[in-house]
């Protein structure tokens, strides 16, 4: 199965590293995650290097600005280009965020929270189904961090996510750092939260660093991953009991490639340890 190629800890393909990665075949990164918005319609030197890597190495695709929970009509031309791009990369699935990013044609370039209401659940399910029908590969939705609830809630975040995933019948890109950050900001236990969730839908994980600003913790993707988040990843992996791919996200304060490789290796080590069968661990 094509999915079997995707296991272990991958990295996001970032512009400052393109030159080095394009020249390097034995980098040891099992797969890359790339954002189609940044590749489709681009050109020039960095674009060519990105294409060299995307045509050579295993790739997962992760969109930033589809506004799945929004109301703006689909850009059919872009969706056609996206479909071609997904086929070209050979990605086994495509992920988007469970959020909205544009309103009345105006793009906010931020992952904004959906209302935790029955109406928003119904709306997001129909949008996700419509998007899925336009994609050549299965769609995954990712849980986001949020800093405020949009409007008066009728359910909590866990029920909202579950209802959308089940109603749209899509897979889950579970971002464990986002769960951890939300748990800090809203004061809940992330393991208890995860125990309530449809873990059978988890197809991929995200892990990242975050930062505290006063009382608020923000999902910055700009620092090393802290131990409690690694613990949460391990806890999740052993609960799942299957080697779903983990993507280490790093979008800000991007370190040298060698440093990022070392951070990847550290997470990979924790990943391997979490998936050792318990009889072996206790032998």
């Amino acid at each position: 199965m094509a999915q079997d190629r995707f296991t272990g800890v991958g990295l996001g393909l970032r512009r400052p590293h393109l030159e080095q990665v394009a020249r390097m075949e034995g980098h040891g990164v099992p797969f890359w995650e790339t954002c189609p918005e940044n590749v489709i319609g681009d050109g020039g030197r960095y674009h060519r290097m990105a294409c060299t890597i995307l045509d050579r190495d295993p790739v997962l695709t992760h969109g930033l600005a589809m506004s799945v929970g929004g109301f703006d009509s689909w850009d059919e031309e872009y969706l056609r280009d996206l479909g071609e791009f997904l086929v070209r990369t050979g990605t086994p699935w495509h992920s988007e965020h469970l959020c909205f990013t544009s309103v009345d044609g105006s793009c906010l370039h931020e992952l904004l929270p959906l209302p935790f209401t029955r109406e928003a659940v119904r709306h997001t399910i129909s949008r996700a189904r419509a998007l899925q029908a336009r994609l050549p590969v299965p769609l995954l939705l990712e849980n986001i961090t949020y800093y405020a609830e949009l409007g008066a809630k009728e359910m909590d975040e866990a029920d909202f996510i579950t209802a959308v995933l089940e109603g749209a019948d899509v897979g889950w890109l579970l971002d464990v750092n986002n769960v951890y950050v939300n748990a800090l900001n809203f004061g809940f236990d992330p393991r208890e939260w995860l125990s309530r969730m449809p873990l059978d839908r988890v197809t991929q994980l995200h892990i990242a660093g975050h930062k505290k600003f006063g009382d608020l913790t923000v999902d910055t993707h700009g620092a090393d991953v802290i131990d409690p988040v690694i613990d949460l990843m391990q806890w999740t992996l052993s609960r799942l009991g299957r080697p779903v791919p983990v993507l280490l996200e790093r979008d800000n304060h991007i370190p040298d490639f060698d440093e990022l490789l070392a951070e990847r290796a550290r997470i990979q080590h924790a990943y391997d340890a979490a998936l050792v069968p318990s009889e072996v661990r206790h032998a």
Binding site: F71, V103, D104, S106, P115, E119, G151
Partner: peptide
């Protein structure tokens, strides 16, 4: 207009206005 859309418009205004 749905409540969901009005809530989204309100947040967009809060960001962009």
């Amino acid at each position: 207009e749905s409540r969901t859309l009005r809530l989204q418009r309100a947040l967009a205004s809060l960001v962009l206005n």
